[in-house]
């Protein structure tokens, strides 16, 4: 029985990597090919020299950021969720909190098949919702534009991420206050003293996360010794 279950799981995982890799490569080709295809239609192909220059100006920063994102987020997302999330994007402001929230609601543990399933279900659903909302939005762009761009509603849409992290902060801080205090205080102090770092918040996740993991490790060891 257990062997059968393991065999099924191994087959599923193999399939996930195969489909994930093939589809990621196809998506890459489509995304890089699209500007050439559109350029052919428009009668002007991309200027590769300008692309190379601009890549050196801004692309290298994003390359480093992508490596960091891959290393940090893949363990949170699992295999299937990882492939999908890197294809569909909007990681920090949606996919990561979404998968973590789903995992939390279901009570799945990291590194388990259950976590892998829940994470994939979550990322796939989230991506489909975004695709649907954007497709509907584009379809109804003319009637929606005045509402969405109305001056009164702008503060709401400018603060989607604080609203998201506020709710998530309560959810995670309430049971782990001993882990959360130090990174919160340190990050606040750092951003107050060096405000220019605010534009690099996504990179500051690394020291903040490392500190939280360090504290969690100390508490974990202490708890284990106490048992």
């Amino acid at each position: 029985m257990e062997n059968n279950r393991n065999a099924k799981w191994a087959a599923y995982t193999r399939g996930t990597h195969r489909i994930g890799r093939i589809c990621t490569v196809i998506t890459l080709i489509l995304l890089v090919g699209a500007p050439f295809l559109m350029g052919t239609y428009l009668g002007a192909l991309p200027d590769l020299g300008a692309v190379a220059k601009a890549f050196l100006a801004v692309g290298l920063v994003w390359t480093v950021s992508s490596v960091v994102e891959f290393l940090i987020y893949t363990p949170m997302l699992g295999a299937g969720g990882g492939y999908l999330a890197f294809i569909t994007g909007n990681l920090i402001n949606m996919k990561i909190p979404c998968a973590v929230n789903a995992r939390d609601i279901v009570g799945a543990k990291t590194g388990t098949p259950e976590n892998e399933i829940i994470s994939t279900l979550s990322i796939a659903t989230s991506s489909l919702v975004t695709i649907l909302v954007l497709a509907l939005g584009v379809l109804l762009l003319t009637p929606l534009q005045p509402i969405l761009q109305s001056e009164a509603l702008q503060p709401a849409f400018e603060n989607v991420v604080p609203a998201l992290f506020g709710a998530m902060a309560y959810k995670y801080y309430r049971n782990h206050m001993n882990v959360a205090v130090a990174p919160l205080v340190l990050m606040s102090a750092l951003f107050i003293l060096v405000p220019s770092l605010i534009s690099s918040t996504s990179m500051m996740i690394i020291p903040s996360g490392a500190l939280a993991i360090g504290i969690a490790w100390l508490l974990y060891r202490k708890q284990k010794k106490g048992v």
Partner: peptide, 14 residues
């Protein structure tokens, strides 16, 4: 969980 707390803390701090 700690990594996610670190992520949220970085944004709250910002």
């Amino acid at each position: 969980t700690a990594m996610f707390i670190g992520l949220v803390s970085a944004y709250m701090g910002s």
